[in-house]
Each structure stands twice: as C-alpha cells, then as structure tokens.
C-alpha cells in the first residue's frame, strides 16, 4: 500500500499506518495522518484500540521464540534421529 502526502487518508491506509506504528516504523507525516483519521473515523479508532491492546499483551507476556537459524539446526538433528 502506498502512502500519500495528503493528510486525509482512507480507512485502509490508516489501518496500514496503525500497524506500522505498532513497530515504531510510521513516519511523522503518517502519524499525523493517522491521528487525524482517528478524530472522525470510528472504524479506525476501534482498529487502533484493538491493535494497541495486542501489542501490550505481547509485551506483557514476555513471549519468546527460538531463532530461525536455531530451528533449522534442530530440524536437522531431529531428521538425523528419525532416519537412524
């Protein structure tokens, strides 16, 4: 999805910015666009609220994952064990 320079954005674009913003990757202009949309669009507000809550939950849970490279090693080992 492309971003525009117009400060009025569509609902879909606002959701896209909101997603990026959860990872701190929205630009200053995008944040202004999102905030403006939030003022008058109920759908964007609901999406934003839910999205923020998801981010907070993931942070709170302190969830972790095994590195992708490590998983490959584990797969390899398991495969060796399977074919023994």
């Amino acid at each position: 999805m492309k971003t525009t320079n117009n400060i009025f954005v569509s609902c879909e674009q606002a959701k896209y910015i909101c997603d990026k913003n959860q990872y701190g990757e929205a630009s200053a202009l995008e944040i202004i666009q999102l905030n403006l949309r939030l003022v008058y669009c109920r759908v964007t507000r609901a999406y934003s609220k839910r999205n923020t809550k998801l981010t907070q939950m993931i942070e709170k849970s302190n969830i972790q994952a095994i590195d992708v490279s490590q998983k490959k090693v584990m797969k390899q080992k398991l495969h060796e064990e399977l074919t023994k």
């Binding site: 972790q64 994952a65 095994i66 584990m74 797969k75 398991l78 495969h79 399977l82």
Partner: peptide, 30 residues
Amino acid sequence: NSWIDKYSDYLFNYTIVRVDDREIAQDLVQ
C-alpha cells in the same frame, strides 16, 4: 516432521519461564 514448526516455540516458552536460560531451554526442547 512437523514438530519443530508446530510446537518448538510453545515448548520453548513453557521451558524458559522455568529454567531462565535460552540455551538450556533449547536443549531441553530438543
């Protein structure tokens, strides 16, 4: 064959809160 993709992270999280060491947790999962 699907164990690592499906369950390794789940098991890893279960372990890490109990042993508090990434390497040991990975070994235990393996």
